[in-house]
Nucleic acid binder design. Structure first.
Lengths: 159, 159
DNA sequence: AGAATCGCTTGCAAATTGCAAGTTAAATTG
DNA sequence: CAATTTAACTTGCAATTTGCAAGCGATTCT
């Protein structure tokens, strides 16, 4: 019978959650997916400068593995042969719910740099948000949907 | 100002997704959460035998970190001083949407051992499933909600 | 009292990660 | 069109993390 020994090491169990984590259960993979999904990033350098400080060898490795897993595609840009454009596949964009729920969870339980009110609104309009994310993907809209929530520069308060 | 340098290494950015992954972005953490959430597992040995083959030192480490992160609690059992009962906190049970999304994603895109029809039904009744998971948590119901989807024993077909 | 069980810890080898410095190919600049 | 810059990686190496097997201390069972 079909034995799907995975590209990324052996298959540990048939549990779907376990299989998911075999593909992107690490510190970096989902951040790349996030960058592609909501920030409109497309190039190696975009990811590299994306704020979390991934090193180039690991980034290259993750991109290779995500491509192998069918979550992203890589295509050399026509107008500039140095650039590689990465894009999410349908399998990749289908991770949107996972990322949205991670976002919501973290805003509820961690001290994040994301504006709580905005995320609450997104949580309430879950389906709508997911539809919009998918629309952007379908139409290759790569304007940022969410900004990088970096650590707040403390706003100059009056006191 | 409050500088939340995390227990688990430095805080890389304020991005909520990044913060989430700092806490459980690895091969094992979410599997422990899954075991607690839907399989009714509670002890070290339960996790150890849970099918994926985590080694004991790593398991101990993940349990410690999840506890530190406030995702699980550990309590020695009254009736048997050897046993430690692990349980999800509210922060932990709030990961249910994430796990459900992972489950659904994998069933859609990977060859898993979970019955597709069942998961499809769960996907359609998302809110209901989440409510039930939460109810189980609230009432400390630790009967299995989903079985371990191990690799299918090939059913003895006629030919 | 002795054996078993549970939840770990320890030691060590192997794999993975992170960092800094290349390298290659393509574009841009002067 | 030669020199420089840029983009996307590699490479080498040290540090960290992982995996495996064995062991250990505190109960509890027999």
């Amino acid at each position: 019978m079909i034995d799907v020994a995975n590209k990324r090491g052996l298959r540990r169990s048939g549990c779907p959650v376990s299989l998911s984590l075999e593909q992107f259960g690490d510190r970096w993979s989902l951040l790349v997916v996030r960058d592609l999904m909501v920030r409109g990033y497309r190039t190696f350098k975009d990811f590299q400068n994306s704020g979390e400080g991934i090193s180039t060898n690991i980034l290259a490795d993750r991109l290779r593995k995500l491509e192998l897993a069918g979550i992203i595609t890589a295509e050399v840009e026509h107008s500039d042969g140095r650039r590689v454009n990465y894009r999410l596949t349908e399998k990749g964009i289908d991770l949107a719910p996972v990322l949205l729920d991670l976002l919501i969870w973290a805003v509820h339980h961690e001290q994040t740099a994301a504006p709580c009110a905005l995320i609450e609104r997104m949580a309430r309009n879950r389906e709508q948000v997911l539809a919009e994310v998918r629309r952007r993907w379908r139409e290759r809209d790569s304007t940022p949907f969410l900004p990088p929530f970096e650590d707040k520069k403390r706003p100059a308060t009056k006191s």
